[in-house]
């Protein structure tokens, strides 16, 4: 796999990929403040909202550029 492709893949890393790692994996600590299971569920709910709003935004942008291109 060449460097350009690697770069592109790297840039395409979705928020989901991140969330799956930073919320569910890694060093968990005892004591002080850490995320509770309930909070993690909350994040996934928020993530769905976030992703659907991103999708809507993208669709709108595509529509706008499509209309723009047609002119």
């Amino acid at each position: 796999m060449d460097m350009t492709r690697q770069q592109t893949l790297k840039q395409q890393v979705t928020l989901l990929e991140l969330v799956d790692r930073v919320l569910n994996k890694g060093v968990v600590l005892s004591g002080d403040i850490t995320l509770s299971v309930a909070n993690v569920d909350l994040v996934y709910v928020g993530l769905r909202v976030l992703l659907s709003s991103v999708a809507t935004l993208e669709e709108q942008r595509e529509q706008i550029s499509a209309t723009g291109a047609a002119r």
């Binding site: 790692r21 930073v22 919320l23 569910n24 994996k25 890694g26 060093v27 968990v28 600590l29 005892s30 004591g31 002080d32 403040i33 850490t34 995320l35 909070n39």
Partner: peptide, 19 residues
């Protein structure tokens, strides 16, 4: 590096060092 889970917070430096 060993990554920590998101939102791992210590109340003060002493607690972090103790961990």
């Amino acid at each position: 590096v060993l990554p920590c889970r998101f939102c791992t917070v210590y109340r003060n430096e002493a607690e972090l060092r103790r961990f």
